[in-house]
Design a protein around this nucleic acid. Structure first.
Lengths: 221, 221
DNA sequence: AAGTATTTTACGGGAAACCGTAATGGAAGA
DNA sequence: TCTTCCATTACGGTTTCCCGTAAAATACTT
């Protein structure tokens, strides 16, 4: 069993439950942080003391409050921790169910497990931990299909920037000027129109409004 | 202290924490349900046995899964329970922070307390329960402003229907035909355009795309 | 280096959105 | 019944979106 586990989770209620779960599993040392900034501090401290954590269980989204933070999301936190200690095992424990997001986490952040918060997630969390001990990866069964998701590959950063500006009220007319100003290429009105047309086609949207509604629902923007 | 409390919450991890909290407060009988349908069954059963619950702690959104359900949301559950037992006290315990939604809950569903899931929500939940015992209402301090929200009054069902259809890809051109087909009035293209213009003005949106992005973010659609 | 493919840009016509003004119709009050 | 008011509808002009075609620029092959 893992000896030393760090929980990064903002909600107190979930912290209570996860901590209890780890205790039940026989984890000796459990620490938790409600802010990503605190989590990375604890992690660095443990590394300095030559008693590093061997598992991180992290949420993805952390509610903003009065406190100013450097690391605002679980994904950033994982990237930051992997950078200073690549051997760390990571389980994401989140409500997020968008294939695009989850696929990216496995591909880019190289997480080891993904447990979706839900009706049966505590037992899944236990299974995930045991699975990781065998060197394998885990994903909640209801999300297994997420890893087959192709959206992540087909949609690039340019598309996401474009969609975001559309959602922020920038008209196609203004987009060319804006992109030139931001040094984003390609930036001709024609290409931008073509890209939007491609996206509408891809997401089977009737018009630009529909396109934004769909991509917002998918969590792409 | 409340004698008999029902928890309606789909996530197992949160159920664990809330149940523990109620135990700590000295609640004698605690039941929980992961589906709204189960919750109302338990409630009716208790009523029949002349041992009704005197407090309901309910989530708002319940994740859909394989199981078909009659009551899909916490709001519907609360309405249904209030209908058969108006004396019930209700605390909503949810991540939802959209003023529009919360204001509507107090105004329409007449809930007694609203606790936002967050970093300190368990202690807030305890305070909420104690506040209710004095016959007062409770709302998480960070959301106190929600009750002053005017959106709820200014935006009516017609607006929401219109926005939803817009988000679903219906063009303004087609909206007139659709509304006539659905017996929704007013339905002239002109009035529909005027309504959309009013909404864009209200939400300070540059265009219809922007409008949908904003109202989606606000949880209005 | 020449040829081919692909991406980007330019342009234009038709459709839809946008926005103001005026006409219509129905409800409330005198 | 008449008048006033307000919501709805009708209409038209301008702008923007939408979508196709073609030219230009860039990348890729041989």
């Amino acid at each position: 069993m893992y000896k030393k586990v760090l929980i990064a989770e903002d909600f107190d209620s979930i912290n209570i439950a996860v901590e209890q779960t780890l205790k039940d599993l026989g984890v000796q040392e459990i620490q938790y942080a409600k802010y990503c900034d605190d989590a990375i501090l604890k992690f660095k401290k443990a590394l300095q003391d030559h008693q590093p954590f061997d598992l991180l269980i992290s949420d993805l989204s952390f509610v903003e409050d009065y406190r100013e933070v450097k690391i605002a999301s679980g994904e950033e936190l994982i990237q930051a921790i992997k950078k200073i200690h690549p051997e760390i095992n990571v389980i994401v424990y989140s409500v997020e169910d968008k294939p695009y997001i989850i696929k990216t986490l496995f591909d880019e952040a190289q997480i080891n497990g993904y447990v979706k918060k839900g009706r049966n997630s505590i037992s899944q969390l236990k299974t995930a931990i045991e699975t990781l001990l065998y060197g394998k990866t885990f994903i909640s069964p209801e999300l297994a299909h997420a890893l087959q998701d192709k959206t992540a590959k087909e949609i690039d950063n340019y598309d996401i920037t474009l969609l975001s500006h559309l959602a922020n009220g920038v008209a196609i007319e203004e987009m060319e000027t804006l992109f030139k100003h931001l040094n984003i290429t390609p930036n001709s009105k024609s290409t931008i129109e073509k890209r939007v047309a491609k996206l509408k086609d891809y997401f089977k949207a009737n018009n630009n409004i529909h396109l934004i509604a769909i991509t917002k629902d998918l969590g792409i923007i």
